[in-house]
Structure formats: structure tokens, C-alpha cells
Amino acid sequence: MDDTALWIVSLLASTVRLATPLVLASLAGFYSERAGVVDIGLEGKMLTGAFAAAATAAVTGSPWAGLAAAIAASLVLALVHGFACITHRGDQVVAGVAINTIAAGLTAVLANAWFDLGGRTPSLDSGQRFLGLHFPLAEAVRGVPLLGRFYGEVIGGQNLLVYLAVLAVPATSWVAYRTRFGLRLRAVGENPAAVDTAGISVPWLRYRAVLITGLLCGVAGAYLSIAQGAGFQENMTAGKGYLALAALILGKWRPYPTLAGCLLFAATDALQARLQGVALPVVGAVPVQIIEVLPYILTVLLLAGFVGKSIPPKAAGQAYVKDR
């Protein structure tokens, strides 16, 4: 029984750790897409953030400097995205693909040239990373069955950026549904002409949305390389940006359901690692790939309307042309 409890606690703790970058990135996508700018480029911005964070933390020794660098680098790419899609009304998907491609190449080239470790950055020691925070009384209640460990290892013991991600969900919900900026943000994603008629600048609104996206992607990237991990590796995002986008679709472009989507994807990921070669009751040993692809299959089914229906913001993907 105690083994099962331990197993559950470690699964949950691992789910939280794996969900964090997805939550940050999918909320990032939330701002951009609700403002009508489709963002395939979450992946690239995260990757760039991860590299900037690890490189800066390795050189300066400060995780805070790393976090700042991650945000700055991701913001630059967000501006490129905005410049192409908002200012020049370029194709948003193509711009996203360009950003992902540039990020994949540039991080590898710079990491290789600056650190000469074959595309990695040096391993960071504990002072250069965001480490797990120790919650008060965690040791004292450890003995309490299940709940003690749950408090110490799932609720507590996570690093700062995890809590930031947890806070970002209600914050996003509040911004989007309780503030003037949020109302305008959602309006510009549904009907930019109406926003324009009200005398509000569509480009400026969309630029702000895209910059928030950049900020959150930067944090997500920093989490991967200087909180969860201890350094940058080539292509270390490995599709997490796309998965975050899928979670956003699964959550029908709303913050709390998106959080649920991220937790679901993270849980399948955590489960997948633990079920490798384990024989399950009834079905026997399942190839891990089947569990691994569940998020992708779910997204496909959902988008196709076989499991509920997910409808994107109406103006998403379209550049706004003022004089028409």
C-alpha cells in the first residue's frame, strides 16, 4: 500500500514538473491567438529562451540573469513575428515556421561556437539554477500517510517557476475576462474591424498580445534549461511548443480548460515513462509509443469534432487591413 502511495505521489510530482512548460507556453499562445495572431512559433521562442537562459546563467552564475536573458531573447523573436504578421500582414503560419526554423538553427550554431560542447551549454551547478523550494513543516508532516508526502513533494518542493506558472492561470483568466485590456484583446481576435471602429489601434493591441506571448515563452524556455534541467541541449523543447498549442486547442482557447489539457498531456508523459515494459492488467505490455501519441490523437480527434468541437477565434490567422 505504501508503495502505491509513493508511486502516486511521484507520478503527480512528475506531472506537475512536466506540465509547467506546457502551461506557460500554452498561456503564451492564448494571448497571441485570442488577439487573432496564430502562433506556431511557440516552440522556437521557447527553445531560444532555453538557450539564452542556460548560456547567461553559465556565464554570469545567476539564474535571474538567465531568466531575464530568456525573456529578452524570446521577446525579440516575438517582435519579429509581430513585424511580419501585424506590420507587414505576412502569413502567420509561415512566420511561425520561420521562427521555429531560425531558432532551431541559431541556438545550435551559437551553443556550438560559444561553448564548444557539441551544441550543449555547460552543466549548471545548483547556484545557477532555480531549485525546489522547501515548504515549512514539510519534514514534520512527512510521516502522515499520503498527504504528508503530497504536501512535501507535489505542493511544495517545486521551483519558483512552477508556482509562477500556477499563478499565471488565474492571472490570465482575470486579465482576459475582467479587464478592459482583456475585453479588447478578445474582441480584436473575433472582430478587429469593430475594435478599429471604436478608435482602438488594432496593431498596437496585437503587438502587446504578441509581446506577452514572448514573455511567457521566455519563462517557459528558462524553466526547461535552468530549473527543470541543468543546461541547454540542441532541440531540447522537442515539440513541447506544438503540444502546448494542442493543449490550447483542447482547452478551446480558454485558460482553465487549457490548464486541464496541459495536465492531461503531462500526466500521459509521466505515465509513459513509468509504464515502459510494465505489463498492465487485461491488455498486457503496451508499446510506450501508444501512450506517447495519445495527446496527438486526442488533438486530431478534437479538432475534427469527433470529441466535442474546438472553434478558434474568428479572426485568427487573418491580417487586418484597415482601409476596406
Binding site: 519579429v80 513585424f83 511580419a84 505576412g90 520561420a98 531560425i102 561556437a113
Partner: peptide, 26 residues
Amino acid sequence: YNEISPRLVVVIQGVVILFSGALEHM
């Protein structure tokens, strides 16, 4: 050149997509 990763090609590819795709209106 040891310092130059073969992934430089990926950067060039990305910039081409950016300029000839997303920024074609520029």
C-alpha cells in the same frame, strides 16, 4: 571550421522562409 555547426544551414533556411514567405509583402 570546428566553430561553425552544420546547423548554420537551418538558420539560412529559416531566414529564407521568413523573407520569401512571411515578409514577402515587405
